[in-house]
Design a protein around this nucleic acid. Sequence first.
DNA 1: ACCTGAACACCGTTCAAGT
DNA 2: ACCTGAACACCGTTCAAGT
Lengths: 186, 186
Amino acid sequence: VPTPSRTSLVAIVAAGRRLIESEGLTGLAMRRVADEVGVQPPSLYKHMTGRSQLIRLIAEDVLGDLMNSLNAAVTGDDPRANLVALAGAFRRFAHENPGAYALIFTPLPEESRPDPNLLTKTGDQVLRIAEALAGAEHSLEAARTITAWAHGFVAMELAGAFRMGGNIDEAFTFGAARLGEALDSR
Amino acid sequence: VPTPSRTSLVAIVAAGRRLIESEGLTGLAMRRVADEVGVQPPSLYKHMTGRSQLIRLIAEDVLGDLMNSLNAAVTGDDPRANLVALAGAFRRFAHENPGAYALIFTPLPEESRPDPNLLTKTGDQVLRIAEALAGAEHSLEAARTITAWAHGFVAMELAGAFRMGGNIDEAFTFGAARLGEALDSR
DNA sequence: ACCTGAACACCGTTCAAGT
DNA sequence: ACCTGAACACCGTTCAAGT
C-alpha cells in the first residue's frame, strides 16, 4: 500500500540549511532535521542516503544563491568597477549567510563536496572580470588571486581573526582597489 | 593517597594534534585521545576542562609552530622579497600540516579560540613587511590584504576548490608578485 | 511507497568509588 | 591526587514491522 510522502527533499534541505545557519555544522543533527520537517529520523533516509549527502545538497543550495547574488551584482562595463561590485556582493552574501558561507568554504569530505560544475559556474563572473583586467593568458591566475583575497578576507572576518582594531570596511575597500590596479594590465 | 600522573597535558595535546592532523576535528574523540596516552577517558578531565579547551590548546600549539616557521623565513632587507619568502613559508606550513592549518583558520566557538595575543604575535612579520611596503598609515590594511590573500589561496587549495586546472604554484607566485607591486608605495 | 519504534554502536561528560 | 567503571544523555544509521 503506497503512502504519500509526509515530507520532501526540498523541505529537508531547507530545514537543514536553517539549522546550519543558526548553529553551524554541529547543529545539523538528523533528529533535529526530522523534527523540523515533522517525521521520525529514520524516514529521512527514504529521501537521501544520509547526513553526508544532506550536507552536499545544502552546500549546493547555498552555491546557487551565491551565484545569483554575484550575477546580479555585475552590471557595468568597467572591469575595475565590476571587481569592486563583485567583491562587495560576495562579502555581503557572507555577512547575511555566515553559516551557509562557512559551509561552502569549509574543507568537506569527498561525499559532501558540491558538484564541481556548480563551483565552476559560481566562479564564472570572477573569471570574466579577471580576463577583462589581466588578459586571457593570465585570467586564471588573476581570478584565483581575486577569489583567494576575497574569501580569505571574509573567512578571517567571520572567524574573528581581525583583532588589531582598525576599520575593516576600509581594509576591504583598500584591498579591492589595490587588487584592481595590480591586475589591470590594459 | 596521592597518585603520580600517568599522563600529562603536553602528552594529551600532542596526541590530540596527531589525531586532528590525520582525521580532522571529527577524529578528535576523547576516547581516542585517552587511548593514545594510555588512560581511561574520564582521567583526561583531571588535566583539562573538556574537549573545547583541548581544541584551544592544540590550536595554540599549532600557532606557535606557524609563528616559528614565519619568523625563520624572513631574513633579508628587501620587503618584496620578504613578502615572497613569508608567503612561501606560510603555504609550506599549510601543506605540511593541513589538518593543523585548517584548525587554526576554522571558525571555532569562543571557548576553543586561541589566545588573541598569540594571533597578534603570529601576524607580526606580515605587519612589518606591510609597513615597509605601504607605509605606516596603510600598514594594517596592507597586512590584511596580504593575509587574506595568502590564507584564502591556501584554504581554497586545501578545500579542493581550484578545479579549473592550470598551474597552482604559478598562480601563487603570480599573486605574491602582483600583491608586492600593488602594495609598494615607496 | 513511505513511515515508525526499537536497536546498535558510537559520542562527551559526570560521579562515586578505588588506590 | 589521579585513575577507574558505570552511567547519562546524546549522536547517525539500520531494520523489521506497520499502513
